[in-house]
Nucleic acid binder design. Sequence first.
DNA 1: ATTTTTACGTACCGAGTGGTACGCTTTTCT
DNA 2: AGAAAAGCGTACCACTCGGTACGTAAAAAT
Lengths: 203, 203
Amino acid sequence: MWYENMDEPEKPKRGRPSKMNAESVLDTATKAYWRRDPADVSINSICEMAKVSKPALYREFGNEDGLMAAVLERYAEQVLSEIFDILAKAMPVPETLNALRRFASDSVTMETGCVFYKMRAGKHRLGPITRSRVEAIDTGAVDAFKTYLEARRLDGGWTNAVPTAVAARYLVEQLGLALTQRAAGEDPDQVRGTLELALAAIR
Amino acid sequence: MWYENMDEPEKPKRGRPSKMNAESVLDTATKAYWRRDPADVSINSICEMAKVSKPALYREFGNEDGLMAAVLERYAEQVLSEIFDILAKAMPVPETLNALRRFASDSVTMETGCVFYKMRAGKHRLGPITRSRVEAIDTGAVDAFKTYLEARRLDGGWTNAVPTAVAARYLVEQLGLALTQRAAGEDPDQVRGTLELALAAIR
DNA sequence: ATTTTTACGTACCGAGTGGTACGCTTTTCT
DNA sequence: AGAAAAGCGTACCACTCGGTACGTAAAAAT
Protein backbone atom coordinates (compact mmCIF):
# COMPACT_ATOMS: atom_id res chain seq x y z
CA MET A 1 0.00 0.00 0.00
CA TRP A 2 2.60 2.57 -1.03
CA TYR A 3 1.15 5.93 -1.83
CA GLU A 4 1.25 7.12 -5.44
CA ASN A 5 -0.82 10.25 -5.74
CA MET A 6 -0.31 11.90 -2.39
CA ASP A 7 0.80 15.45 -1.82
CA GLU A 8 4.60 15.03 -1.82
CA PRO A 9 5.46 11.87 -3.70
CA GLU A 10 9.06 13.10 -3.77
CA LYS A 11 10.35 14.32 -0.45
CA PRO A 12 14.15 14.22 -0.31
CA LYS A 13 14.93 13.25 3.25
CA ARG A 14 18.09 14.13 5.09
CA GLY A 15 20.58 11.58 6.25
CA ARG A 16 21.64 8.27 4.87
CA PRO A 17 18.80 6.55 3.03
CA SER A 18 17.45 3.45 4.68
CA LYS A 19 18.05 0.19 2.88
CA MET A 20 16.01 -1.76 5.43
CA ASN A 21 12.77 -3.21 4.11
CA ALA A 22 10.38 -3.74 7.01
CA GLU A 23 7.86 -5.64 4.89
CA SER A 24 10.35 -8.24 3.78
CA VAL A 25 11.52 -8.73 7.36
CA LEU A 26 7.91 -9.22 8.42
CA ASP A 27 7.46 -11.73 5.62
CA THR A 28 10.48 -13.69 6.74
CA ALA A 29 9.53 -13.60 10.40
CA THR A 30 5.96 -14.60 9.68
CA LYS A 31 7.08 -17.57 7.64
CA ALA A 32 9.43 -18.64 10.42
CA TYR A 33 6.81 -18.29 13.16
CA TRP A 34 4.37 -20.15 10.96
CA ARG A 35 6.60 -23.12 10.25
CA ARG A 36 8.20 -23.57 13.65
CA ASP A 37 7.18 -22.76 17.20
CA PRO A 38 7.62 -18.99 17.69
CA ALA A 39 9.47 -19.72 20.93
CA ASP A 40 12.08 -21.61 18.91
CA VAL A 41 12.64 -18.81 16.41
CA SER A 42 15.46 -16.50 17.48
CA ILE A 43 15.99 -12.92 16.43
CA ASN A 44 19.40 -14.00 15.21
CA SER A 45 17.95 -16.55 12.82
CA ILE A 46 15.40 -14.05 11.50
CA CYS A 47 18.13 -11.50 10.80
CA GLU A 48 20.11 -14.15 9.01
CA MET A 49 17.18 -15.33 6.87
CA ALA A 50 16.04 -11.78 6.11
CA LYS A 51 19.60 -10.62 5.42
CA VAL A 52 19.27 -7.76 7.85
CA SER A 53 21.65 -6.71 10.57
CA LYS A 54 20.43 -7.05 14.11
CA PRO A 55 20.60 -3.34 14.96
CA ALA A 56 18.59 -2.58 11.83
CA LEU A 57 15.85 -4.91 12.99
CA TYR A 58 15.88 -3.41 16.46
CA ARG A 59 15.74 0.12 15.05
CA GLU A 60 12.59 -0.85 13.17
CA PHE A 61 10.72 -2.91 15.75
CA GLY A 62 12.22 -1.92 19.09
CA ASN A 63 12.55 -5.42 20.45
CA GLU A 64 11.32 -8.96 19.98
CA ASP A 65 7.95 -8.08 21.42
CA GLY A 66 7.52 -5.33 18.84
CA LEU A 67 8.46 -7.64 16.00
CA MET A 68 6.11 -10.40 17.09
CA ALA A 69 3.29 -7.94 17.61
CA ALA A 70 3.85 -6.53 14.12
CA VAL A 71 3.88 -10.03 12.66
CA LEU A 72 0.69 -10.93 14.49
CA GLU A 73 -1.03 -7.75 13.36
CA ARG A 74 -0.32 -8.41 9.70
CA TYR A 75 -1.17 -12.08 10.09
CA ALA A 76 -4.53 -11.22 11.61
CA GLU A 77 -5.36 -8.93 8.72
CA GLN A 78 -4.20 -11.26 5.99
CA VAL A 79 -4.97 -14.74 7.31
CA LEU A 80 -7.23 -14.70 10.34
CA SER A 81 -9.60 -12.49 8.40
CA GLU A 82 -10.63 -15.60 6.46
CA ILE A 83 -12.32 -16.95 9.57
CA PHE A 84 -14.16 -13.72 10.22
CA ASP A 85 -15.16 -13.62 6.56
CA ILE A 86 -16.72 -17.06 6.81
CA LEU A 87 -18.79 -15.93 9.78
CA ALA A 88 -19.71 -12.65 8.13
CA LYS A 89 -21.27 -14.53 5.23
CA ALA A 90 -24.01 -15.52 7.69
CA MET A 91 -24.55 -18.88 6.03
CA PRO A 92 -26.54 -21.62 7.73
CA VAL A 93 -24.75 -23.37 10.61
CA PRO A 94 -23.88 -26.62 8.77
CA GLU A 95 -22.31 -24.76 5.85
CA THR A 96 -20.39 -22.47 8.16
CA LEU A 97 -19.07 -25.35 10.25
CA ASN A 98 -18.04 -27.14 7.11
CA ALA A 99 -16.18 -24.12 5.83
CA LEU A 100 -14.43 -23.72 9.16
CA ARG A 101 -13.51 -27.38 9.23
CA ARG A 102 -12.12 -27.21 5.73
CA PHE A 103 -10.10 -24.14 6.62
CA ALA A 104 -8.63 -25.67 9.77
CA SER A 105 -8.12 -29.28 8.86
CA ASP A 106 -7.74 -29.37 5.09
CA SER A 107 -6.37 -26.10 3.72
CA VAL A 108 -2.74 -26.09 2.71
CA THR A 109 -2.23 -22.64 4.17
CA MET A 110 -2.83 -24.09 7.63
CA GLU A 111 -0.61 -27.08 6.97
CA THR A 112 1.88 -26.11 9.65
CA GLY A 113 -0.66 -24.64 12.02
CA CYS A 114 -1.56 -21.07 12.79
CA VAL A 115 0.69 -18.26 14.02
CA PHE A 116 -2.02 -16.90 16.28
CA TYR A 117 -2.76 -20.19 18.00
CA LYS A 118 0.93 -20.94 18.31
CA MET A 119 1.50 -17.65 20.05
CA ARG A 120 -1.53 -18.20 22.24
CA ALA A 121 -0.25 -21.65 23.24
CA GLY A 122 2.95 -20.06 24.53
CA LYS A 123 1.27 -16.95 25.87
CA HIS A 124 3.34 -16.87 29.04
CA ARG A 125 6.49 -16.45 26.98
CA LEU A 126 5.25 -13.42 25.04
CA GLY A 127 6.08 -9.81 25.67
CA PRO A 128 3.35 -7.49 26.94
CA ILE A 129 2.39 -5.97 23.58
CA THR A 130 2.09 -9.26 21.73
CA ARG A 131 0.32 -10.91 24.63
CA SER A 132 -2.33 -8.24 24.88
CA ARG A 133 -2.88 -8.41 21.12
CA VAL A 134 -3.26 -12.17 21.35
CA GLU A 135 -5.83 -11.79 24.08
CA ALA A 136 -7.68 -9.14 22.15
CA ILE A 137 -7.83 -11.30 19.05
CA ASP A 138 -8.96 -14.24 21.15
CA THR A 139 -11.88 -12.42 22.73
CA GLY A 140 -12.64 -10.81 19.37
CA ALA A 141 -12.90 -14.25 17.81
CA VAL A 142 -15.18 -15.51 20.56
CA ASP A 143 -17.36 -12.43 20.11
CA ALA A 144 -17.57 -12.97 16.37
CA PHE A 145 -18.69 -16.56 16.87
CA LYS A 146 -21.16 -15.44 19.50
CA THR A 147 -22.84 -12.86 17.31
CA TYR A 148 -22.92 -15.31 14.42
CA LEU A 149 -24.62 -17.98 16.54
CA GLU A 150 -27.05 -15.54 18.09
CA ALA A 151 -28.08 -14.43 14.64
CA ARG A 152 -28.66 -18.05 13.53
CA ARG A 153 -30.67 -18.64 16.67
CA LEU A 154 -32.85 -15.66 15.87
CA ASP A 155 -33.50 -16.71 12.28
CA GLY A 156 -34.33 -20.22 13.46
CA GLY A 157 -31.38 -21.83 11.73
CA TRP A 158 -29.86 -23.05 14.98
CA THR A 159 -31.90 -24.63 17.75
CA ASN A 160 -29.15 -26.15 19.86
CA ALA A 161 -29.75 -25.84 23.60
CA VAL A 162 -26.17 -24.88 24.50
CA PRO A 163 -25.63 -21.20 25.40
CA THR A 164 -24.07 -19.20 22.58
CA ALA A 165 -21.24 -18.03 24.84
CA VAL A 166 -20.26 -21.63 25.60
CA ALA A 167 -20.60 -22.70 21.99
CA ALA A 168 -18.55 -19.75 20.77
CA ARG A 169 -15.67 -20.43 23.17
CA TYR A 170 -15.97 -24.12 22.28
CA LEU A 171 -15.56 -23.46 18.58
CA VAL A 172 -12.54 -21.24 19.09
CA GLU A 173 -10.91 -23.94 21.19
CA GLN A 174 -11.71 -26.76 18.77
CA LEU A 175 -10.32 -24.80 15.85
CA GLY A 176 -7.23 -24.21 17.94
CA LEU A 177 -6.93 -27.87 18.76
CA ALA A 178 -7.11 -28.88 15.11
CA LEU A 179 -4.56 -26.24 14.12
CA THR A 180 -2.26 -27.32 16.92
CA GLN A 181 -2.52 -30.92 15.76
CA ARG A 182 -1.63 -29.90 12.24
CA ALA A 183 1.35 -27.91 13.55
CA ALA A 184 2.49 -31.05 15.37
CA GLY A 185 2.38 -32.93 12.10
CA GLU A 186 -0.38 -35.31 13.10
CA ASP A 187 -2.10 -37.48 10.56
CA PRO A 188 -4.51 -35.26 8.57
CA ASP A 189 -7.22 -37.91 8.69
CA GLN A 190 -7.06 -37.96 12.47
CA VAL A 191 -7.19 -34.19 12.62
CA ARG A 192 -10.20 -34.10 10.35
CA GLY A 193 -11.91 -36.91 12.23
CA THR A 194 -11.45 -35.23 15.58
CA LEU A 195 -12.61 -31.84 14.32
CA GLU A 196 -15.66 -33.28 12.57
CA LEU A 197 -16.68 -35.07 15.72
CA ALA A 198 -16.15 -31.93 17.77
CA LEU A 199 -18.18 -29.75 15.44
CA ALA A 200 -21.00 -32.27 15.44
CA ALA A 201 -21.65 -31.27 19.04
CA ILE A 202 -22.70 -27.83 17.85
CA ARG A 203 -24.84 -28.82 14.93
CA MET B 1 9.71 -49.52 47.10
CA TRP B 2 12.94 -50.21 49.00
CA TYR B 3 13.59 -53.86 49.66
CA GLU B 4 13.33 -55.01 53.25
CA ASN B 5 13.58 -58.77 53.30
CA MET B 6 15.88 -59.49 50.44
CA ASP B 7 18.93 -61.69 50.57
CA GLU B 8 21.54 -59.13 51.64
CA PRO B 9 19.82 -56.29 53.40
CA GLU B 10 23.26 -55.18 54.50
CA LYS B 11 25.75 -55.02 51.69
CA PRO B 12 28.65 -52.74 52.55
CA LYS B 13 29.55 -51.06 49.29
CA ARG B 14 32.97 -49.70 48.52
CA GLY B 15 33.69 -46.05 48.00
CA ARG B 16 32.16 -42.97 49.43
CA PRO B 17 28.51 -43.47 50.26
CA SER B 18 26.08 -41.57 48.10
CA LYS B 19 24.17 -38.76 49.74
CA MET B 20 22.14 -38.14 46.60
CA ASN B 21 18.47 -39.01 46.89
CA ALA B 22 17.12 -39.72 43.43
CA GLU B 23 13.53 -39.90 44.61
CA SER B 24 13.56 -36.45 46.13
CA VAL B 25 15.09 -35.04 42.96
CA LEU B 26 12.35 -36.68 40.94
CA ASP B 27 9.77 -35.21 43.29
CA THR B 28 11.19 -31.74 42.87
CA ALA B 29 11.50 -32.05 39.10
CA THR B 30 8.01 -33.46 38.75
CA LYS B 31 6.54 -30.60 40.75
CA ALA B 32 8.42 -28.09 38.62
CA TYR B 33 7.36 -29.67 35.31
CA TRP B 34 3.83 -29.86 36.62
CA ARG B 35 3.54 -26.22 37.62
CA ARG B 36 5.39 -24.60 34.74
CA ASP B 37 6.03 -25.51 31.14
CA PRO B 38 8.73 -28.21 31.12
CA ALA B 39 10.59 -26.22 28.46
CA ASP B 40 10.89 -23.35 30.92
CA VAL B 41 12.34 -25.48 33.71
CA SER B 42 16.14 -25.53 33.63
CA ILE B 43 18.39 -28.17 35.10
CA ASN B 44 20.02 -25.41 37.10
CA SER B 45 16.77 -24.46 38.79
CA ILE B 46 15.97 -28.08 39.58
CA CYS B 47 19.38 -28.57 41.20
CA GLU B 48 18.82 -25.45 43.23
CA MET B 49 15.35 -26.46 44.39
CA ALA B 50 16.37 -30.03 45.13
CA LYS B 51 19.61 -28.91 46.81
CA VAL B 52 21.68 -31.19 44.65
CA SER B 53 24.83 -30.34 42.75
CA LYS B 54 24.62 -30.44 39.01
CA PRO B 55 27.21 -33.23 38.55
CA ALA B 56 25.29 -35.32 41.09
CA LEU B 57 22.14 -34.99 39.04
CA TYR B 58 23.97 -35.82 35.84
CA ARG B 59 25.60 -38.85 37.46
CA GLU B 60 22.14 -40.14 38.35
CA PHE B 61 20.18 -39.36 35.20
CA GLY B 62 22.79 -38.95 32.47
CA ASN B 63 21.32 -35.82 30.96
CA GLU B 64 18.15 -33.76 30.77
CA ASP B 65 16.51 -36.34 28.56
CA GLY B 66 17.13 -39.04 31.18
CA LEU B 67 15.72 -36.90 33.96
CA MET B 68 12.58 -36.01 32.04
CA ALA B 69 12.06 -39.61 31.01
CA ALA B 70 12.40 -40.71 34.64
CA VAL B 71 9.95 -38.04 35.74
CA LEU B 72 7.49 -39.07 33.06
CA GLU B 73 7.79 -42.73 33.96
CA ARG B 74 6.96 -42.14 37.61
CA TYR B 75 4.25 -39.67 36.69
CA ALA B 76 2.61 -42.22 34.41
CA GLU B 77 2.57 -44.82 37.17
CA GLN B 78 1.36 -42.52 39.89
CA VAL B 79 -0.95 -40.08 38.12
CA LEU B 80 -1.83 -41.19 34.61
CA SER B 81 -2.82 -44.55 36.07
CA GLU B 82 -5.98 -42.89 37.37
CA ILE B 83 -7.24 -42.54 33.82
CA PHE B 84 -6.50 -46.14 33.00
CA ASP B 85 -8.18 -47.17 36.27
CA ILE B 86 -11.33 -45.33 35.29
CA LEU B 87 -11.43 -47.19 32.00
CA ALA B 88 -10.60 -50.53 33.64
CA LYS B 89 -13.69 -50.23 35.83
CA ALA B 90 -15.71 -50.87 32.68
CA MET B 91 -18.56 -48.67 33.82
CA PRO B 92 -21.25 -47.51 31.40
CA VAL B 93 -20.19 -44.80 28.98
CA PRO B 94 -21.97 -41.86 30.67
CA GLU B 95 -20.43 -42.65 34.06
CA THR B 96 -17.00 -43.12 32.55
CA LEU B 97 -17.17 -39.86 30.63
CA ASN B 98 -18.31 -38.09 33.76
CA ALA B 99 -15.43 -39.49 35.76
CA LEU B 100 -12.99 -38.47 33.05
CA ARG B 101 -14.46 -35.00 32.89
CA ARG B 102 -14.24 -34.60 36.63
CA PHE B 103 -10.65 -35.75 36.60
CA ALA B 104 -9.62 -33.39 33.82
CA SER B 105 -11.63 -30.27 34.51
CA ASP B 106 -12.40 -30.32 38.23
CA SER B 107 -9.76 -32.23 40.20
CA VAL B 108 -7.28 -30.14 42.13
CA THR B 109 -4.44 -32.46 41.17
CA MET B 110 -4.85 -31.35 37.56
CA GLU B 111 -5.15 -27.70 38.51
CA THR B 112 -1.96 -26.73 36.69
CA GLY B 113 -2.37 -29.20 33.87
CA CYS B 114 -0.72 -32.51 33.22
CA VAL B 115 2.97 -33.28 32.87
CA PHE B 116 2.36 -35.78 30.10
CA TYR B 117 0.27 -33.46 27.96
CA LYS B 118 2.70 -30.60 28.57
CA MET B 119 5.56 -32.74 27.34
CA ARG B 120 3.50 -33.91 24.40
CA ALA B 121 2.66 -30.32 23.47
CA GLY B 122 6.38 -29.53 23.23
CA LYS B 123 7.31 -32.88 21.75
CA HIS B 124 9.77 -31.41 19.25
CA ARG B 125 11.87 -30.06 22.11
CA LEU B 126 12.22 -33.39 23.91
CA GLY B 127 15.19 -35.70 23.84
CA PRO B 128 14.84 -39.07 22.09
CA ILE B 129 14.14 -41.15 25.20
CA THR B 130 11.47 -38.89 26.62
CA ARG B 131 9.91 -38.37 23.23
CA SER B 132 9.56 -42.06 22.52
CA ARG B 133 8.04 -42.61 25.98
CA VAL B 134 5.57 -39.80 25.32
CA GLU B 135 4.59 -41.40 22.05
CA ALA B 136 4.27 -44.81 23.66
CA ILE B 137 2.04 -43.45 26.41
CA ASP B 138 -0.01 -41.61 23.83
CA THR B 139 -0.72 -44.65 21.70
CA GLY B 140 -1.21 -46.70 24.87
CA ALA B 141 -3.88 -44.28 26.00
CA VAL B 142 -5.64 -44.39 22.65
CA ASP B 143 -5.55 -48.19 22.78
CA ALA B 144 -7.02 -48.23 26.27
CA PHE B 145 -9.88 -46.01 25.17
CA LYS B 146 -10.38 -48.13 22.10
CA THR B 147 -10.67 -51.41 23.98
CA TYR B 148 -12.96 -49.76 26.51
CA LEU B 149 -15.29 -48.47 23.80
CA GLU B 150 -15.26 -51.72 21.88
CA ALA B 151 -16.30 -53.54 25.04
CA ARG B 152 -19.18 -51.12 25.60
CA ARG B 153 -20.23 -51.56 22.01
CA LEU B 154 -20.30 -55.32 22.48
CA ASP B 155 -22.38 -55.19 25.65
CA GLY B 156 -24.79 -52.79 23.98
CA GLY B 157 -23.98 -49.88 26.28
CA TRP B 158 -22.70 -47.74 23.44
CA THR B 159 -24.45 -47.45 20.11
CA ASN B 160 -22.75 -44.40 18.67
CA ALA B 161 -22.03 -44.67 14.96
CA VAL B 162 -18.51 -43.21 15.12
CA PRO B 163 -15.67 -45.71 14.71
CA THR B 164 -14.03 -46.62 18.02
CA ALA B 165 -10.61 -45.64 16.71
CA VAL B 166 -11.80 -42.13 15.92
CA ALA B 167 -13.66 -41.79 19.21
CA ALA B 168 -10.66 -43.03 21.18
CA ARG B 169 -8.29 -40.54 19.57
CA TYR B 170 -10.93 -37.87 20.01
CA LEU B 171 -11.22 -38.49 23.74
CA VAL B 172 -7.45 -38.40 24.24
CA GLU B 173 -7.30 -35.08 22.42
CA GLN B 174 -10.22 -33.53 24.29
CA LEU B 175 -8.77 -34.52 27.62
CA GLY B 176 -5.52 -32.95 26.51
CA LEU B 177 -7.28 -29.78 25.46
CA ALA B 178 -8.98 -29.42 28.83
CA LEU B 179 -5.74 -30.08 30.68
CA THR B 180 -3.91 -27.58 28.50
CA GLN B 181 -6.56 -25.00 29.22
CA ARG B 182 -6.20 -25.59 32.94
CA ALA B 183 -2.43 -25.26 32.65
CA ALA B 184 -2.95 -21.92 30.93
CA GLY B 185 -5.03 -20.78 33.87
CA GLU B 186 -8.26 -20.45 31.96
CA ASP B 187 -11.57 -19.99 33.73
CA PRO B 188 -12.56 -23.39 35.21
CA ASP B 189 -16.17 -22.89 34.14
CA GLN B 190 -15.09 -22.43 30.54
CA VAL B 191 -12.87 -25.48 30.72
CA ARG B 192 -15.70 -27.58 32.11
CA GLY B 193 -18.17 -26.17 29.61
CA THR B 194 -15.94 -26.94 26.67
CA LEU B 195 -15.12 -30.43 27.86
CA GLU B 196 -18.76 -31.29 28.61
CA LEU B 197 -19.76 -30.18 25.16
CA ALA B 198 -16.93 -32.17 23.61
CA LEU B 199 -17.78 -35.34 25.50
CA ALA B 200 -21.43 -35.03 24.54
CA ALA B 201 -20.37 -35.87 21.00
CA ILE B 202 -19.42 -39.36 22.16
CA ARG B 203 -22.40 -40.12 24.30
C1' DA C 1 33.87 22.38 1.65
C1' DT C 2 31.99 21.67 5.97
C1' DT C 3 28.37 20.64 9.07
C1' DT C 4 24.28 18.17 10.28
C1' DT C 5 21.37 14.35 10.07
C1' DT C 6 20.38 9.74 9.61
C1' DA C 7 21.01 4.82 9.01
C1' DC C 8 24.55 1.46 8.57
C1' DG C 9 26.64 -2.92 10.67
C1' DT C 10 30.75 -5.06 13.34
C1' DA C 11 31.75 -6.42 17.42
C1' DC C 12 30.63 -6.59 21.63
C1' DC C 13 27.72 -7.30 26.43
C1' DG C 14 25.74 -9.97 30.36
C1' DA C 15 22.82 -13.60 31.43
C1' DG C 16 21.45 -18.20 31.11
C1' DT C 17 21.67 -22.81 29.04
C1' DG C 18 23.14 -27.96 29.07
C1' DG C 19 27.07 -30.33 30.30
C1' DT C 20 31.86 -31.66 32.34
C1' DA C 21 37.06 -31.66 34.13
C1' DC C 22 39.13 -32.50 38.01
C1' DG C 23 40.82 -32.33 42.59
C1' DC C 24 38.91 -33.82 47.07
C1' DT C 25 36.66 -36.75 50.48
C1' DT C 26 34.91 -40.94 52.33
C1' DT C 27 34.53 -45.54 52.33
C1' DT C 28 36.20 -50.76 51.91
C1' DC C 29 39.70 -54.11 50.69
C1' DT C 30 44.32 -55.81 51.01
C1' DA D 1 49.09 -48.15 56.60
C1' DG D 2 48.17 -47.86 52.04
C1' DA D 3 45.79 -48.80 47.72
C1' DA D 4 41.51 -48.90 45.27
C1' DA D 5 36.93 -47.49 44.55
C1' DA D 6 33.28 -44.44 44.40
C1' DG D 7 30.68 -40.14 45.04
C1' DC D 8 31.36 -35.36 46.09
C1' DG D 9 30.92 -30.41 44.34
C1' DT D 10 33.54 -26.05 42.67
C1' DA D 11 34.52 -23.97 38.92
C1' DC D 12 34.66 -24.13 34.57
C1' DC D 13 33.37 -25.08 29.26
C1' DA D 14 31.17 -23.63 24.69
C1' DC D 15 27.11 -21.93 23.05
C1' DT D 16 22.96 -19.19 22.29
C1' DC D 17 20.02 -15.77 23.65
C1' DG D 18 18.12 -10.74 23.45
C1' DG D 19 20.02 -6.41 23.13
C1' DT D 20 23.42 -2.38 22.29
C1' DA D 21 27.88 0.87 21.95
C1' DC D 22 30.05 3.04 18.68
C1' DG D 23 32.72 4.25 14.69
C1' DT D 24 31.47 4.83 9.83
C1' DA D 25 29.00 5.84 5.41
C1' DA D 26 25.75 8.50 2.79
C1' DA D 27 22.61 11.83 2.09
C1' DA D 28 20.85 17.08 2.51
C1' DA D 29 21.65 21.71 4.36
C1' DT D 30 24.78 25.42 5.10
